[in-house]
């Protein structure tokens, strides 16, 4: 069978589908001071997965606010700088109007994913940290 670390080189999704891959990629991003990109990406997936059960609405609102505050509000943050202004105002609008939707972070997540696919992921595959691991 193909060793996991070779699969990681196939696509960003193969990398993010593996615990060890995530761990190594995050260590690399941390060195580059941009681990927030990965944390945000997972936070968006986790947010979408939250089930709509009773009592969850309050939790969702709290979580949406927390994601907004941590990654988007500070315009100097690594995540905020990579998200289009229109996308940021859409999310802000959702939070301000308490209009919480499971898909409210989807566009922002896509933008961060594209950035990782074009930038940090290929650099990771050429990094010492990955090469030493393999």
């Amino acid at each position: 069978p193909t060793p996991p670390y070779l699969k990681w080189a196939e696509s960003l999704h193969s990398l993010l589908d593996d615990q060890d891959g995530i761990h190594l990629f995050r260590t690399f991003l941390k060195q580059e001071d941009c681990a927030d990109l990965l944390d945000f990406w997972f936070a968006c997936s986790g947010f979408r997965k939250l089930e709509t059960s009773e009592g969850n609405e309050e939790k969702k609102l709290k979580l949406a606010k927390a994601i907004y505050k941590k990654y988007i509000l500070d315009s100097n943050g690594i995540v905020s700088r990579q998200i289009k202004p229109a996308t940021k105002s859409f999310i802000k609008d959702c939070v301000v109007r308490l209009h919480i939707d499971p898909a409210m972070f989807d566009q922002a997540q896509t933008e961060i994913q594209t950035m990782m696919e074009e930038n940090t992921y290929p650099v990771f595959l050429k990094s010492d940290i990955y090469l030493e691991y393999t």
Binding site: L16, D17, D18, Q19, I22, D39, F42, A43, C44, S45, G46, F47, K49, L50, K59, K62, L63, K65, A66, I67, K69, K70
Partner: peptide, 20 residues
């Protein structure tokens, strides 16, 4: 009640793949 950071951390962890 969970603090915002705890909530965020749990959310991030919940989206990660489970142990092989």
């Amino acid at each position: 009640l969970d603090s915002e950071d705890d909530l965020l951390q749990k959310c991030i962890t919940s989206a990660m793949p489970k142990q092989r």
